[in-house]
Structures are given as structure tokens and as C-alpha cells.
């Protein structure tokens, strides 16, 4: 299933050598497998993101192992050093084995 995801870089204008903040957001229910459906009384099966990988120009800069205790619609905030123009790719895997990815272009000015 396609998940809505977004990468935000703060500040918007940056130069080579700057350390910028990366916000990565996913629309995801993050079911723990403990919650009961109130209508049917059955336990909702667990479905959560278990791995997030940040790649900058093909080089892995950060990997995050995640378990079910992250909130629904998670936001991951990390920092990154700008090192020339290129692409930031984020790959995220779910416990069901599903893999999705999203990317954004890095364009430093000056």
C-alpha cells in the first residue's frame, strides 16, 4: 500500500558545509497489536514501520530501528551535513515486509 510521506529540510536556504535539520513524516497507523476493535471485539493485527534508512548520494548516513511504541503518523527528526548537490533518499520497511521510498533533491546555494 502506498504511504503518504514527506521530507522537509530546515532552513530552506543552505550552503555547502551547513548542518541542516531533516524532518521525515509518514502517514501510518502504527498498530501495536494490543488494541481491540470496539465494534468486532477482535484484536487489530500489528502493523508498524520497523526500519528507516536515510541515504545521501548513495551513502547511508542514518538507519533507525523502530518498534511499535512510536506514535501514529511518526515524524523522525535528524541532522545532516550538506556536502554538495545530490539526492536524499529515505527507504522505510514495515513489519509485514512492505518497502516504500521517497526522495528529495539537495540544492545548496553558494
Amino acid at each position: 500500500m502506498e504511504r503518504k510521506s514527506l521530507i522537509k529540510i530546515k532552513p530552506k536556504k543552505y550552503k555547502n558545509g551547513d548542518v541542516v535539520k531533516i524532518n521525515f513524516m509518514v502517514m501510518h497507523p502504527m498498530e501495536t497489536g494490543l488494541r481491540k476493535d470496539k465494534k468486532t471485539g477482535k484484536i487489530v493485527p500489528a502493523q508498524y514501520i520497523n526500519n528507516v534508512k536515510f541515504e545521501y548520494n548513495g551513502k547511508v548516513i542514518t538507519t533507525i530501528n523502530v518498534w511499535e511504541s512510536l506514535s501514529a503518523n511518526p515524524v523522525f527528526t535528524i541532522y545532516m551535513k550538506i556536502d554538495g548537490p545530490g539526492e536524499l533518499k529515505v527507504t522505510f520497511t514495515e513489519n509485514t515486509g512492505e518497502v516504500n521510498e521517497t526522495s528529495t533533491k539537495i540544492k545548496p546555494k553558494g
Binding site: K59, T62, F76, T77, I78, M80, K81
Partner: peptide
Amino acid sequence: VHLTPANGKAIFAAR
């Protein structure tokens, strides 16, 4: 969170 020197700062935030 597994970081590398390319991060520049060791900060992580989530909910």
C-alpha cells in the same frame, strides 16, 4: 538510531 559522522549533530526527535 544509528548515526554516522555525516550527521553533523547528534540529535534525534520523535513522538
